[in-house]
Computed example of a mutant assay.
Amino acid sequence: MKKIILLALSLALLVTQSVQAAEADATKKPDAAAEQKWTYKTPKLDRAKLEALLAKPSQLLIIDVRRPDEISKIGGFPVYLSIQSKDIENSLKYIPKDRKIVTVSNHAHRAGIAADLLASKGFKVVGAVGSQNYEEEGGVINKIEIPPPKAAASSTDTPKAEVSTTQPKI
């Protein structure tokens, strides 16, 4: 009898733990960027591949396709050409064709779209990278420090114009 009760309690505990684990998995939000499959012709670069390219800066052009507010909030690479993804096709004449190109976005998906477009137009695209993915892999992203707003000048801080009372010599 004791064995049956012990077996029933063990079974109940096991079922409870399984149900709790299933509920935890169901409530966990999946990471949209991680779930999205890479469907682009351009290869997605990891940190090691990007750093190998960054070692030869005279041969490389980084095109960041993010909005300026994303770059200032998240950070970016030290030197890049900023062309938002919606403007790539209209900016082709400004992009040099003599360099290897890496496109950048937050998780590389917009970068993949832009890279495929550039490759189809004859540019030497070597890959796409996500700046946040690069940072998660241990890479260093340059953060843009936004200075605090200047305090409003009070009336006592305003310099007053000085009036000369001397007569000019003639």
Rank of each mutant, 00 (worst) to 15 (best):
M1N: 03
K2Y: 03
K3S: 01
I4D: 10
I5F: 00
L6Y: 03
L6I: 15
L7E: 05
A12P: 07
L13E: 01
L13D: 00
Q17Y: 03
V19A: 06
Q20N: 03
Q20V: 00
Q20Y: 00
A21R: 02
E23P: 00
D25T: 01
D25N: 11
D25I: 00
K28I: 08
P30R: 09
P30C: 01
D31S: 04
A32L: 11
A33R: 06
A33D: 07
A34S: 07
E35A: 11
Q36K: 13
W38G: 04
W38C: 10
T39E: 08
K41V: 10
P43D: 06
A48K: 08
K49Y: 00
K49F: 01
K49I: 08
E51R: 07
A52H: 00
A52Y: 01
L53A: 09
L53V: 01
A55Q: 02
S58C: 04
S58F: 04
Q59V: 05
L60W: 03
L61A: 08
I62H: 04
I63F: 02
V65D: 11
D69Q: 04
D69N: 09
I71A: 07
I71L: 09
S72M: 15
K73N: 12
I74Q: 02
G76P: 02
G76S: 09
P78F: 02
P78V: 07
Y80L: 06
S82N: 14
Q84N: 14
I88L: 06
E89R: 08
E89Q: 14
S91F: 05
L92K: 09
K93W: 01
K93C: 06
K93S: 15
K97E: 14
R99F: 00
K100L: 14
K100Y: 02
K100H: 14
V102S: 06
S105P: 06
H107L: 12
H109N: 11
R110Q: 13
A111I: 07
A111P: 10
I113K: 01
L117R: 05
L118M: 06
L118K: 11
A119N: 14
A119T: 07
S120K: 08
K121W: 06
K121V: 07
G122Q: 13
G122V: 11
K124G: 02
K124Q: 13
K124N: 14
K124T: 12
G127T: 02
A128Y: 03
V129M: 12
Q132A: 14
N133V: 09
G138P: 03
G139T: 10
N142W: 02
N142V: 13
K143G: 07
I144M: 13
E145H: 10
E145W: 09
I146Y: 13
I146C: 08
P147F: 01
P147H: 13
P148W: 06
P148H: 04
P148K: 04
K150F: 11
K150T: 12
A153R: 15
S154L: 05
S155Y: 12
S155D: 12
S155I: 15
T156D: 15
D157R: 06
P159Y: 03
P159E: 08
K160N: 09
Q167N: 14
Q167D: 11
K169E: 15
K169D: 12
K169V: 12
I170P: 10
